[in-house]
Design a protein around this nucleic acid. Structure first.
Lengths: 121, 121
DNA sequence: GGGACACTTCAAATACTATTGAAATATTTC
DNA sequence: GAAATATTTCAATAGTATTTGAAGTGTCCC
């Protein structure tokens, strides 16, 4: 993850609605949520939400797959971990004081859908 | 740390120069660096840098104290930890899969300067 | 106190971001 | 295939951020 990716991810998260969306997806876990459910929970207009999802997707923070008429968005934990790693990297020039690194690696409970699941990153 | 603080901190970090500045301060550790040294290392105009420091300070990511003619800026590790905590909070609805939380709590090697050290947060 | 040094503040120009309403696309159901 | 559902794309507008040059403030040293 290079600097421009990090800036893009931070910029994506640095907005009220998107931060809410992202956190909702983080809490939802690897199986994600359909766009409509995010829209209704957060009371966002579908076109506005679509714009925000796009930012999150372009910056690598979420993935999306189509399932029927719905678009299922899910948080990318690898990106979140890389982001945090970048921020805390070489903290205090590597001094030994308690700097623990985060690692979120949850697993999906849903079997991967192979045919209709073309993931757009 | 409430949502608006988190958005402010993320927005502060979501900018090329500021991200560089912040990381430099994180690596420098709790004793910080004088503004001029940051300016020369990152090749930034002093007024531009001052603007960026202000953003970082307003969002609680850095502190500043005057030492003689210099302004010493330092990263606030408590804010960084809170920020990361917010992002990873309730990850996967609290599922038990390996979600470790970060904690950076380094200590200064410099004895606190009591007279001239009015910290502006 | 006068000059040099280290930074900050101000004002103006330019560029980016978010939101809205209207129209378009993909998928399912009848 | 037409209607309904779920979501995206487009165009316009209003608000916010970054940079630059010029001027200002606080501190040290003679």
């Amino acid at each position: 993850m290079d600097k421009s990716d990090v800036v893009a991810a931070l910029a994506a998260l640095a907005q009220d609605s998107r931060l809410d969306v992202y956190r909702l997806l983080v809490q939802a876990g690897p199986d994600g949520l359909p766009a409509g459910q995010v829209a209704s929970r957060l009371k966002l207009a579908p076109n506005t939400l679509s714009f925000h999802f796009d930012r999150l997707r372009q910056s690598g923070l979420v993935t999306v797959v189509r399932r029927g008429r719905s678009m299922i968005y899910a948080a990318r934990f690898d990106t979140m971990n890389a982001l945090i790693g970048y921020l805390t990297d070489n903290c205090c020039a590597g001094a030994s004081q308690g700097c623990v690194v985060v690692a979120c690696t949850p697993e999906s409970k849903v079997a991967p859908i192979l045919e209709s699941a073309r993931v757009r990153t």
